[in-house]
Amino acid sequence: MLNPFAERKLKLNLLQSLRFGGKKTSGTVQRITCGGCKADFEPSALQAVMYVCPRCGFHLQYPVRERLEKLFDADTATEKFKDLAPSDVLNFPGYAKKISETASKTGLPEACICVTGKIGGHTAVCAAIDISFMMGSMGTAVGEKITLAAELAQSSRLPLIIFSAGGGARMQEGIFSLMQMIKTSAAIKRFSDSGGLFISYITHPTTGGITASFASLGDITLAEPGALFGFAGPRVIEQTIGEKLPNGFQSSEFQMEHGFVDAIVSRSDSRAELTKLLSLHSV
């Protein structure tokens, strides 16, 4: 009857393709189409504006390394736990191959990248999930990196910022993937009890087990405009209730209205807003 994960995956794939629009080839340069107004741009033009459409303000998918590079003060960022790669815990048919293909295609070792550095002069630990790596699903290595980031923030008494994204569990790691929800939540709890500040920053799309664990546990929750943020996928919900959902259901703005987000912060304001929050929490 219900098949939340399949529905969610379809939806995520659809949304991802919308975000990228289609990549059009004109001459030798691939152009990227805005998912909002359908204008198309050269990648370098979008890169210069943090992948926010200069015409309509739509937030396109932002590669995590570029996000972190723009966020931190120049030459202060150091990547942490770089060597952690996915492991084929269930010896799942075809998974090892999929991992190596995805890693070489994306240039990422896993969906999660951790960095320490300074934002507006304030040192912080930061983790971010890139959905181009298996939809940002929480494999054991992703759970481990989030947990290590929380433990590092706790032991070095630094604030923690997590840019969440992703659909939840990674099928190929089964129950081990599910257990990462508990592991990460437990680590955030310890960090919080030690007095640490955790800012959860929701990016498109954040759903499933990511929403139902660390992404929802921030002292402060920020969200990018128009990001999908929810537990069950929209198609599953439509199937359950037998009617179409209104436009904007589970968007950042919807979640703010329902009391689950403190502020919608656009990409161009994120550095200033985070600096302000870090400063308000520094003694």
């Binding site: 437990a186 709890k189 929403t211 139902a212 929802s216 537990f231 069950a232 359950t240 259901f249 689950f260």
Partner: peptide
Amino acid sequence: TPGAYPGKSAEERGQGQAIAECLYQMSA
């Protein structure tokens, strides 16, 4: 349980946040 209820009202009232809070509080 086959899983948490995937309905509209559940989302409006924060299904993900409710589950996260359970994991968070039980852990400690």
